[in-house]
Amino acid sequence: MDNVVLKTAFLYPDIFCLNGERGNISALCRTAEKLGIKMMVDRINSPDSAINFDTYDIFYIPSGELKYIISTAQALKKQHSSIKKAVDAGKIFLITGTSVALFADKIIRADKSEYSALGIGAFDCIERKDVYGNDLVFDTQALDKYLRITGCQISLINTVLKDGSKPLGEVVYGYGNNGGADEGIIYNNCIFTNALGPVLIKNPQLAAAIIRLALKNRDIDIKLNDIDFEIENNSSIKIWEFIEEKIKNNTRSGR
């Protein structure tokens, strides 16, 4: 297995990476290593630089501020056809937090100004006037197996799905896309989630599922090491206890 190498492109970490998302790169590398394969990572620092999408198995875009998402989306339009081709070819894109808006058809800001974005995935993003932060727990079967994901959400936008796109998962606790049952979006192998920060550190099973998908994309059929994530599992248990206390007290605060 030592000769199996996957490549990840870490997109625009200096422009985005608002909530410690660099941890997700560490999680991809660590999980890959535990599974018995090697993960190589390149940083792509500027949206003005052309990307060779064939080079990479996984593209990760961390959460960012809407102002810079809009300017980055404008810059990326020059590469729109390459990005669309990569998405259609099943390349894996993981996009966390507000950066989902990069792929939106339309971004509508709180002052009603409108911006077109990359238009891949059939959804709009609408900025709210208020910030909403809370724990977020959701179930997903979008990556071939059932996963329960535990994270946090700091939401400044509502994501409105249109015909042709489907949610990544179902909200168990939290706000999700816009306060309903839908969480995130899955479009081909583009994974959009509102769970921001180092969500792959808290949920290494999601990192493992992404790595398995990348191997499948390359038709690599190997037996991976069995791994357990005791501390991560304990973390999820404690977070769920906290959420249950909030629910029990019939407030969202748990006070």
């Binding site: 932060g133 724990d135 946090c152 909030k246 969202r252 748990g254």
Partner: peptide, 18 residues
């Protein structure tokens, strides 16, 4: 610790990764 400054309380520790 969990964040209890505002409602709803939540479990953000992500700033440690910054």
């Amino acid at each position: 610790n969990e964040i209890i400054d505002f409602d709803p309380h939540y479990t953000n520790t992500f700033y440690a990764y910054d």
